[in-house]
Simulated assay, not measured.
Amino acid sequence: MASASSNKNKFYFSHFNIRSLCSDFDSFSDYVAAEAFDIYGLSETWLSEPLSSNNFKIHNYNLVRKDRDGRGGGVAFYVVNSLKFQVIDTSAQQSALEQLWIRTKINGKIICFGTLYRPPMANLASSLDDLENAIVSFLPDCDVVMFGGDLNVDMLEAGSPGCSAINQFFNKYNLTQLVQSPTRISQFGGKLIDVLVTSNPKLISDVQVINMDNISDHHLVLTDLDLQKNRVPISYRTYRDYSHFVLTDFVNDLFNVNWQNIFNMTNIDQMITFFQKNITDVFNIHAPLKTSRFSKPPAPWITDNIKFMMKLRQKALTRYKKLKTDTSLYEYKQLRNLVTSAVRNEKKLILNINLD
């Protein structure tokens, strides 16, 4: 299995309830070395603060973890070294849901990856509330959301209250659950409690459930994302360039047109043609037609007000570069933060409209 470092178009993301990283670390480390997926999301790591991350190093991977404050639980990521990422803060939550999120950029796409664990006795409604708060906080700023987790709800029991609540939550945010077969087998049968969820199922080409009974009684769930860089079709737009338009010069040239000629014409079509041609000729002098090439996709959240704010921000930056004073730096930062906040709010508004 190739990792993203050797194949930029394919990206492999997995989730595994390991039920103690300590007890089977060597076996898990060997598996990682053999398969080399890009991200391994783990739940029930059973790590605690006294246990140093140095004891759980895997070659070519970075470990980021979020231990439970107490016995058991815990979530973590092993992320391939070639991938730069940031941890997303989700500390403000009320339920017992354990979640860890990272943000990264691959082939121009901003992707937020998560790994989750909901303890069996944790209130499901409160857990979904905390998951919702986390997703809403970063959804407007990312292109793809992808997470795996053990929710301790059998997703094969479609009519159960727990399964219905989770599916309703997924539908609300246009999320798709990818795993379709049992992920934990016991003497009482199989249950699908380990999920993989994405906001863009079109990127998914394969989903696997892999038996890991030499390490845990949970199966590892794996998917690959096709992250080819989308080429935006190049378009050309023709418009009038008013950057050097001077109204007084424009009006003077209109007055200089010999409009009396129109009274010598008897054909109405000829009059209209004369009028249109002279108006157009004057416009072509003062606001000539210009054709530009556009290769960026439209951004509906960039409103006229935001464009105006961006101009003010750019002027403030230019002023700071010239003056190099604390006051000019403060003014620039204020405008920069104002633009960032406005763009984020517009994105959220568009997202809510689309959801409704």
Rank of each mutant, 00 (worst) to 15 (best):
M1E: 02
K8N: 01
K8F: 01
K8Y: 02
Y12I: 01
F13P: 00
F13R: 02
S14D: 01
I18Y: 01
S20Q: 04
L21F: 03
L21N: 03
F25I: 14
F25L: 08
Y31H: 14
A33M: 13
D38H: 12
I39F: 10
G41M: 01
L42K: 08
S48Y: 02
P50H: 04
L51W: 10
N54P: 02
N54K: 03
N54T: 07
K57P: 03
N62C: 06
L63Y: 07
K66A: 08
K66R: 15
D69Y: 12
G74L: 09
F77S: 04
Y78F: 15
V79C: 05
V80G: 03
N81K: 15
S82W: 15
Q86M: 11
I88D: 03
E98M: 12
Q99L: 10
I102R: 08
I106F: 09
I106T: 04
N107Q: 13
K109L: 04
I110C: 06
F113E: 04
Y117L: 07
N123D: 14
D129R: 15
L131I: 05
N133K: 03
A134R: 05
I135T: 09
L139S: 07
L139K: 03
L139P: 00
P140H: 07
D141I: 06
F147N: 05
L151T: 01
E157A: 14
C163V: 14
N171I: 06
Y173L: 14
Q177L: 09
Q177T: 05
Q177I: 14
Q180E: 13
S186T: 15
L192K: 03
I193T: 12
D194C: 08
S199P: 11
V207Q: 01
V209L: 07
D213A: 11
N214S: 10
N214E: 08
D217A: 10
L227C: 10
L227F: 13
N230R: 11
R231M: 14
V232F: 15
V232Q: 10
P233T: 08
I234C: 07
R240T: 04
Y242N: 04
Y242W: 13
S243C: 08
L247P: 00
D249E: 08
F250M: 00
N252W: 04
F263R: 04
M265Y: 06
M265V: 12
D269W: 09
D269I: 11
T273G: 05
T273D: 12
F275R: 05
F275N: 02
I279P: 10
D281W: 10
D281C: 15
D281V: 12
F283W: 13
I285A: 05
H286M: 05
A287K: 07
A287G: 06
A287C: 11
A287F: 04
L289A: 13
T291W: 06
S292A: 15
K296I: 15
K296Q: 13
A299M: 15
A299Y: 14
P300L: 09
T303I: 09
M309T: 07
M310V: 02
T318V: 12
R319M: 11
K321R: 13
T325A: 00
D326Q: 09
S328I: 10
L329S: 02
E331M: 08
Y332F: 06
K333L: 09
R336A: 02
N337W: 11
S341R: 15
I350M: 10
